[in-house]
Design a protein around this nucleic acid. Structure first.
Lengths: 131, 131
DNA sequence: CTTGACCTTGGAGTCCGCTCCAAGGTCTAC
DNA sequence: GTAGACCTTGGAGCGGACTCCAAGGTCAAG
């Protein structure tokens, strides 16, 4: 299959497929006589693996590491587990941060219409009045 | 005050202050005879306003918009309220997304050690076995 | 045989908020 | 008067994952 066919099969753009190749996620495929990339059917699986991992929040570098293990013929479950545990911890931290931020924003806008402009901990909302 | 003094007063780097100036968040200050930036005391307030807004998750462009209103002498509460409401909605969406992702990861790692490698919705975890 | 859709490449641009650099000038304390 | 800490500028680099470009080559349909 050509690059656009592979891309279509997984719902990405041809540029993205070529980018993954440059990034080392997809092996350079064989070429037709005229230099076109000709992908074997397994390329679809591999590309789907990449997209699946991305949906889980893994970065391309991490996916590349998993694929490197997978390419030795070993299931990358073990490194994946460590990786996913770390990601869960990161998510927890991010969720806590965003929740706290949300609470702060809600409190702030809750006070806004009531009358006077608030002051942030630092920095006046209102312009200095002619001082 | 000099740029490093202003920066120290608010806990940022001199480069950041100059960056904010280039970005239109801080007005170009008067210069000393030798070309050094000489900030008036009010610059501290303005810089603190910027950092306070950033802590709330506003982007520099948005802060610039608020400051543009503030610079007309009007309190930017009204645009800020609209902006903050939008940010709360964005936070809600992001919190929902991350929560769902976390649940998915937890489910996935929960099943991992039990025995066999899972398959993602798309893309095998395990390498193709000699097919 | 022409049209138009595909393909190739390397490199640049995007967003965001810095952060760092080099090469030069200035200011302060001793 | 000199060391060393500051200041100036424009521009590049970073991270992350693309996305787009130009200039050229290829291929299938009509």
């Amino acid at each position: 299959m050509r690059v656009a066919e592979l891309a279509d099969a997984v719902g990405v753009r041809p540029d993205t497929v070529r980018y993954y190749e440059r990034a080392g996620l997809l092996p350079p495929p064989p070429r037709s006589a005229s230099g076109y990339r000709r992908y074997p059917a397994e390329a679809v699986d591999r590309l789907r693996f990449v997209r699946g991992c991305q949906k889980l929040g893994l970065r391309l570098k991490e996916i590349a590491d998993l694929l490197a293990v997978r390419d030795t013929g070993v299931c990358p479950c073990e490194p994946a587990e460590t990786m996913l545990h770390r990601h869960i911890a990161e998510l927890d931290a991010e969720l806590a941060r965003l929740s706290a931020l949300r609470a702060e924003l809600v409190e702030l806008v809750g006070g806004l219409p009531s009358g006077r402009c608030p002051e942030l901990d630092q920095g006046d909302w209102c312009p200095p009045e002619g001082r």
